[in-house]
């Protein structure tokens, strides 16, 4: 049946075209690469450049109209105290979230690669993938009800006689607040929860690439397991952590939904962008704000690429 089908097809125009393509790899490449490049290169990168261009326009102080001329006025505005505070707050949160994600993700990844049986490993893998792919909004919402003042955490704290601990945490200036769902602690917990799967998978990938022979060599040369971990496994898994942090850092930098739903109302970069382009109508400033994540992540990606993090993505 198969051969009959094949001989029947091998005549006519399609045949000619197919063979022409096979003989002209460049033409084939152009046909393959053209559509995705046009889409991402023109639609996406083009949009990013349009955004960059807008950040050099500025808002007229009196009329509130966007002046379409090159100037650095918007950037001067971006570097004022209040706006820098937003940037610092966001970067500090992103860094804290990234470190917490590494702390939670590393043991899970390590257990998956070095200790779990293959069945257990598959199960854990699924356990990481499901939250990663299930609805972002639903997962944020779950924390809204867990962290609420009348909610689950308060109840458990009461049962375990730990209310003093909860109150103590909330009494800490800056990061505390009236309840978990209106404090930086709450925002931090939700960020960590949402992004932690993005950290686990690259660390697993990196740990799996650590050659077994190196670990055995280290043991043969007399290192204790702890030293082998510190001197062999940990350094070799750095690319995985860097790859994971691309996501945790970048996604925290731009998120505006989590701090909107859980947290006090002090703005993060994403919320500032939203407010500037929406109610304030200051698109140049919104565009200038987005340059922060772009520049930070651009530098980060270049460093990450040098460190070989892309192989662990």
């Amino acid at each position: 049946m198969q051969t009959a089908a094949i001989t029947r097809e091998s005549h006519g125009v399609a045949h000619a075209i197919a063979n022409a393509l096979y003989r002209n790899p460049r033409l084939l490449l152009a046909l393959l690469l053209g559509p995705p490049l046009i889409w991402l290169g023109i639609v996406y990168l083009g949009s990013l450049f349009a955004l960059l261009a807008q950040s050099f326009f500025h808002l007229d102080d009196f009329s509130g109209v966007v002046i379409h001329e090159f100037s650095l006025k918007t950037y001067a505005h971006l570097f004022t105290g209040a706006n820098m505070a937003i940037v610092l707050r966001t970067v500090a949160m992103a860094a804290a979230v990234t470190f917490a994600c590494i702390a939670i993700a590393y043991p899970i990844a390590y257990y998956m690669v070095r200790h779990a049986s293959s069945k257990m490993k598959a199960l854990l893998f699924l356990g990481v993938m499901l939250p990663l792919w299930s609805s972002y909004l639903v997962r944020v919402y779950a924390w809204k009800l867990i962290l609420a003042k009348e909610g689950v955490i308060t109840w458990f704290a009461e049962r375990l006689h730990l209310t003093w601990l909860l109150d103590g945490l909330l009494a800490i200036p800056t990061i505390g607040g009236p309840s978990l769902s209106t404090s930086y602690i709450g925002t931090f917990i939700v960020f960590v929860y949402i992004w932690v799967p993005y950290m686990i998978l690259p660390i697993v990938a990196a740990l799996e690439r650590v050659p077994k022979s190196l670990i055995e060599a280290s043991a043969d040369l007399g290192s204790r397991p702890r030293d082998t971990f510190r001197n062999v496994i940990l350094p070799l898994s750095v690319p995985g952590m860097v790859a994971g942090s691309i996501f945790t850092f970048s996604l925290t930098l731009g998120d505006y939904i989590i701090p909107n739903i859980v947290g006090n109302s002090r703005p993060f970069i994403g919320m500032a962008v939203l407010a500037q382009q929406g109610t304030a109508g200051n698109i140049p400033l919104a565009a200038a704000f987005t340059m922060w994540p772009i520049v930070i992540m651009g530098v980060y990606l270049i460093v990450a690429k040098r460190k070989g993090a892309f192989e662990a993505l």
């Binding site: 995705p36 991402l40 290169g41 639609v43 996406y44 990168l45 083009g46 949009s47 990013l48 349009a50 955004l51 807008q54 691309i246 996501f247 970048s250 996604l251 930098l253 731009g254 998120d255 505006y256 994403g270 962008v273 939203l274 382009q277 698109i283 919104a286 565009a287 987005t290 994540p293 772009i294 992540m297 990606l301 892309f310 993505l313």
Partner: peptide, 22 residues
Amino acid sequence: SLLLILPIALPGIITGIALRSA
């Protein structure tokens, strides 16, 4: 790969606002 991964590696708000302004 870098070009393709950019739309999910950059925060959604950037992709969103870039497309909107375009």
